[in-house]
Design a binder for these strands. Structure first.
Length: 641
RNA sequence: GCCGGUAUAGCUCAGACUGGUAGAGCGAUUCCUUCGUAAGGAAUAGGCCGAGGGUUCAAAUCCCUCUACCGGCUCCA
């Protein structure tokens, strides 16, 4: 009998018979642990406690106290959901039902579910949980498994792919309901304390839009009812941060039906923030040697035929005929910039040449995709293009990454980085792809950036590094980006004269520090929960006179602060009401002034964090404001500094 | 584009299931109040009930179509 060695999380090792299960190992460690075993992890992968160990592995025992227990519980909850669906819709065909970060879902075929159905399913699931059925693992030989799924091509496909070669194959059973499944599961349906059906969606089998459309039902589950309640409450609270809600409340922007979908209007408050954002990166760009250019919104489509984008994206462009010629709104700025580059002749000494533009672009995104400011038809990219020699790429990328990190740091944002490499269909030589992917990796490593490698996810014209943000609802959106491009210089015949007096082709680098202003604005609204740093706040200071008699003094104070965005509250409200409103409007500073202040020539400063300081000379406050704004500090810090 | 949901006053929502004069709070306006650190009082105005069609003596309400929005899927140069 051969033995294998398992390594426990604390580094200790244990020799067990080959074929021993996870549960056997747990009992080996201790009978208490054995009894508590729910599942196991082998080399980090969640497995059933019945999983045999046939080679040396790292093992972890999952009990009710483990972080992974929630995943196991939700996996069982998915089965409960499936059983509940089948009770009302016996013809539905089950496909897959995994746990996710927030809960679980089950994809089913041949069934349509509306809101009433979901209510029934919820009640049915609660009954199944209430009945506290045992969840048992059962094993069938392959032939029996195929027979069981005679009418279910999805499960048969799983038997032929994921479960290929498994014999017997495992099922899990509760109350007569059986589902092909590797496990693991909790011991009984009653372990689920809180269960909630959340929503439905269409989903494609295998995520492939050319295959069957399935009905996906999302849900979540927790060991306790309280856990579920907390989760649902957190979800509600997240909606309060939603930029669409805050954008309306703070009068930042609107997207009225009459102007068309995905075409946002920026109100004065919103434009103020965008202007500050723009000024900030314009300063950075100029410092880094970028020259500002401007290109029109409308071009002959010849331009995109030349760039090659027309072939791939013509369906997503806004086109129009002008004097029998086809024109289109620009979906990107790079061809315009490439054309500007092409208007001059360049020496190798001139490179890198760097252009930037706040360029508004128009992309006809799928209707179902439009969402607030995060996905729109018209948006502005803080777009930059560098024309560089191959030997300059690494340095240029390094400089761009520095810029991006400076921006991210300024706003104190959380983000994830991904390096996307060469896709199957691509242009450019093996050498240049290998070289540039290596250079991107080196820069990332040098700067100690944690990043995900996304093989094959690069653009057809070159590899890229993307930075992604999460919104209030936990969805991720791409922001800053660095992309190398070997295609466009070729398409536009771009060249420079080398030291050898021959013509050479530059490499183009696309980069954006924000990505799109719209999306970045969305991220900031939600990140700050509407409480913008003073330098960004649409209204930086609001002056609250105690009575109308102090209005004159209020305006004199406003004049002293005329470098800043200051308003005087002149409605005939009580002071308390004025303060309430200023807090609701997220104004960083309130200056309360009555007769005492007017006589002394001072103000009383209150910030939106409810901190106060009285008897402040206006000049003192103004000096502070100057520093706070110039340094782009995150919170108003006059009081408490 | 696909599945599900939603659409009533500037905003948040009730009324719809069971067809019969369109409601509340907040906000706005006017008047009173001039107030010292998170909502002072009163009055008034404000709606083609998303759009179009149908059923009916009668439609916010029932049916159909469309549009927009919300969640998810797919896509994202």
């Amino acid at each position: 009998m051969s033995t294998v060695t398992v390594t426990l999380p604390d580094g200790a090792t244990l020799s067990v018979e080959s074929g021993a299960t996870v549960e056997d190992v747990a009992y080996e460690i201790g009978p208490g642990l054995g009894r508590d075993t729910v599942a196991g992890k082998l080399d980090g992968e969640l497995v059933a406690k019945e999983e045999p160990i046939t080679e040396d592995r790292e093992i972890e025992i999952v009990t009710e106290d483990s972080d992974d227990y929630l995943d196991v519980l939700r996996h069982t909850a998915a089965h409960v959901l499936a059983q509940a669906i089948l009770r009302h819709h016996p013809d539905a065909k089950l496909t897959i039902g995994p746990y996710t970060e927030e809960g679980f879902y089950y994809d089913v075929a041949d069934v349509e579910l509306d809101a009433d159905d979901l209510e029934e399913i919820q009640e049915e699931a609660e009954d199944i949980i209430e009945a506290d059925y045992d969840v048992e693992r059962v094993e069938y030989d392959r032939e029996a498994a195929f027979e069981q799924y005679e009418d279910n091509p999805f499960k048969r496909e799983i038997l032929e792919t994921e479960a290929a070669g498994e014999d017997p194959v495992s099922f899990y059973r509760q109350d007569g309901f059986e589902d092909l499944c590797q496990g693991p599961h909790v011991d009984s349906t009653g372990e689920i304390g809180g269960f909630e059906v959340l929503e439905t969606s269409a989903a494609y089998w295998r995520g492939d839009e050319d295959r069957e459309t399935l009905t996906r039902v999302y849900g979540t589950a927790f060991p306790t009812e309280e856990g579920l309640e907390e989760y649902l409450q957190r979800r509600e609270e997240a909606k309060e941060r939603d930029h669409r809600k805050l954008g309306a409340e703070m009068d930042l922007f609107s997207i009225p039906d009459v102007t068309g979908p995905g075409l946002p209007l920026y109100h004065p408050n919103g434009k103020t923030v965008l202007r500050e954002l723009s000024d900030y990166v314009h300063g950075l760009n100029r410092e880094m040697g970028y020259e500002e250019v401007e290109t029109p919104h409308l071009f002959r489509t010849e331009l995109w035929k030349q760039s090659g984008h027309y072939d791939n994206y013509v369906d997503d462009m806004f086109l129009m005929d002008v004097d029998d010629e086809e024109y289109g709104l620009k979906p990107m700025n790079c061809p315009g910039h490439a054309t500007i580059f092409d208007q001059s002749s360049w020496s190798y000494r001139d490179l890198p040449v760097r252009y930037f533009e706040d360029g508004k672009v128009y992309r006809r995104e799928q209707r179902g995709e439009l969402s607030g400011l995060s996905r729109v038809w018209a948006f502005t990219i803080d777009d930059g293009h560098v024309f560089a020699r191959a030997d300059q790429i690494e340095e240029e990328v390094r400089r761009i990454m520095d810029l991006i990190f400076e921006v991210l740091d300024t706003f104190d944002l959380d983000y994830e980085v991904a390096l996307a490499t060469r896709p199957e269909k691509s242009v450019g030589s093996d050498e240049i792809w290998e070289q540039s992917e290596r250079q991107l990796r080196e820069v990332l490593d040098e700067q100690n950036v944690d990043y995900d490698l996304e093989p094959g996810d690069g653009a057809f014209y070159g590899p890229k590094v993307d930075f992604a943000f999460e919104d209030a609802l936990g969805r991720t959106w791409d922001g800053p980006t660095v992309q190398l491009d070997f295609n466009m210089p070729d398409r536009f015949d771009l060249e420079y004269t080398g030291s050898d007096n021959d013509a050479h082709q530059p490499v183009m680098i696309h980069r954006a520090l924000y990505g799109s202003y719209e999306r970045f604005f969305m991220v900031l609204i939600e990140h700050y929960d509407g409480k913008f740093p003073t330098w960004l706040a649409p209204e930086q200071v609001r002056i609250l006179p105690v009575t109308d008699d102090n209005l004159g003094y209020a305006h004199r104070v406003k004049n002293e602060l005329d470098d800043y965005r200051v308003e005087v509250e002149d409605r005939d409200w009580t002071v308390g009401r004025k303060i309430q409103q200023a807090h609701d409007d997220n104004v960083p500073y309130m200056l309360v002034l009555g007769d005492d202040e007017e006589d002394a020539g001072t103000v009383s400063v209150r910030d939106r964090r409810e901190r106060e300081r009285n008897d402040v000379a206006v000049e003192t406050f103004r000096d502070h404001l100057e520093g706070e704004v110039d340094e782009k500090r995150t919170e108003p810090d006059f009081v408490g500094e």
